Amino acid sequence: MKKILLVCLLGISFAGNAQDEKEEIMKVVNQVFEAMRTNDSTLLKQCFIENPYTFTAYINKEGKSILSTDDFQRFIDAVGQPKERVWNEPIWNEKVNIDGNLASVWVDYAFYLDDQFSHCGVDAFHLILQEGAWKIFHLVDTRRRSDCVIPDDIKP
């Protein structure tokens, strides 16, 4: 009976630790979107390692699959610029996977300028745990303007 109780307690402890790790990882991901909403390039940079890899995957007008390398510094500069309209990118369907110091996050998103829909897709993040902090080292997103199924509670 004592062994069963010990195994149950250890299982709860590990489950709690995994949940805590997922929350820490999602905190970093959510800070990216908060930085975008508030034009805070300093907060954005804190979420990433130096010189991360960023890409966009999309289908062009000719139906060809394209993988475009993005310039991270350009992204930082764009986020930090004052804007007439707020960049709002709500997310849902968060999937977090962790193995040691490596994590991946896959989320659906919709991008709005203020309340006006622009596009939707998926953001896929890879993070590394360094010196006790999760940092994004790779980000790729997809973008499309149609076939977007956005939950009602996500829409502005």
Results as ranks from 00 to 15, higher is better:
Asn101Cys: 07
Gln81Met: 15
Val86Met: 15
Leu10Gln: 08
Ile12Thr: 10
Ile154Gln: 01
Asn30Pro: 03
Leu129Gln: 02
Ala110Trp: 04
Ile150Thr: 00
Val149Arg: 02
Ile136Pro: 05
Asn88Leu: 13
Ile76Phe: 05
Phe14Glu: 06
Ile91Asp: 12
Asn101Leu: 08
Thr42Glu: 11
Glu131Tyr: 09
Lys22His: 08
Leu129Ala: 00
Pro90Glu: 01
Ile150Tyr: 00
Arg145Asp: 09
Glu94Cys: 05
Asn101Ile: 11
Phe55Ala: 07
Val107Gly: 10
Tyr58Thr: 06
Lys2Arg: 13
Lys27Glu: 04
Val32Ala: 06
Ser65Cys: 04
Ile76His: 05
Ser41Leu: 06
Glu34Val: 12
His119Trp: 03
Gln116Pro: 03
Lys45Ala: 02
Lys135Pro: 06
Asn88Cys: 06
Lys22Ser: 12
Lys135Glu: 13
Thr142Met: 02
Asp70Met: 14
Lys95Cys: 09
Arg143Gln: 09
Gln46Asp: 15
Val122Asp: 13
Ser146Gly: 08
Arg37Leu: 01
Trp134Glu: 03
Pro82Asn: 11
Asn30Leu: 02
Cys8Trp: 03
Asp71Val: 05
Ser68Ile: 09
Glu84Leu: 15
Lys95Arg: 12
Thr42Cys: 05
Ala35Glu: 08
Glu24Thr: 04
Phe117Asp: 01
Leu129Trp: 02
Gln31Asp: 14
Cys8His: 05
Leu139Ile: 02
Asp70Ala: 14
Cys47Asn: 06
His138Pro: 05
Gln73Phe: 12
Glu23Gln: 09
